[in-house]
């Protein structure tokens, strides 16, 4: 595994764990800023900072919603997919859940990286 992929995976994993912990402790959106903080201050990235957050939250929210769907038999997913309205398509609701989390995560990590550059331009960033 090359170093940059390794760093990407490490950052993504750390952002995912931070987001998961934040979900249980505080508001839904706090998962985003927390993963942003990871990217900004723990493993600062110079390029592509959007993607670790995006992937972390995509996987986290996707896995959690899919897991809940499968574990509970999917009756609520189907009801909510009709209410929202998504024509009762549970898969679409799971995808949109994952995508929403991903957008939040991606934007937050991108913001975190930009903020980091702005506040401490001298510090060496990981590529």
């Amino acid at each position: 595994m090359n170093a940059s992929l390794k760093r990407f995976l490490l950052t993504t994993g750390a952002a995912g764990v931070a987001a998961y912990v934040a979900s249980y402790l505080t508001e839904w959106w706090a998962a985003g800023p927390l993963s942003a903080a990871v990217v900004a201050f723990v493993w600062p990235l110079r390029r592509g900072a959007f993607w670790p957050g995006f992937v972390a939250m995509l996987l986290l929210w996707g896995a959690l919603s899919l897991g809940t769907h499968v574990y509970t038999g999917g009756h609520l997913t189907e009801r909510m997919a009709r209410l929202l309205p998504l024509g009762g398509r549970s898969g679409l609701l799971i995808f949109l859940t994952a995508l929403s989390g991903a957008l939040l995560g991606g934007l937050c990590t991108a913001t975190g990286a930009l903020l980091r550059k702005l506040l401490n331009p001298g510090r060496k960033m990981l590529s």
């Binding site: 839904w28 989390g101 939040l104």
Partner: peptide
């Protein structure tokens, strides 16, 4: 995502909070 909004005459629920897989509607699946 955090509050209800009006869109084209429809009220959109607080979607972010609602679809949060840990605390949102998913937590009500049993």
């Amino acid at each position: 995502g955090d509050g209800p909004h009006q869109l084209a005459g429809h009220v959109i629920p607080p979607l972010g909070r609602l679809i949060d897989p840990v605390n949102g509607f998913w937590a009500n699946a049993e």
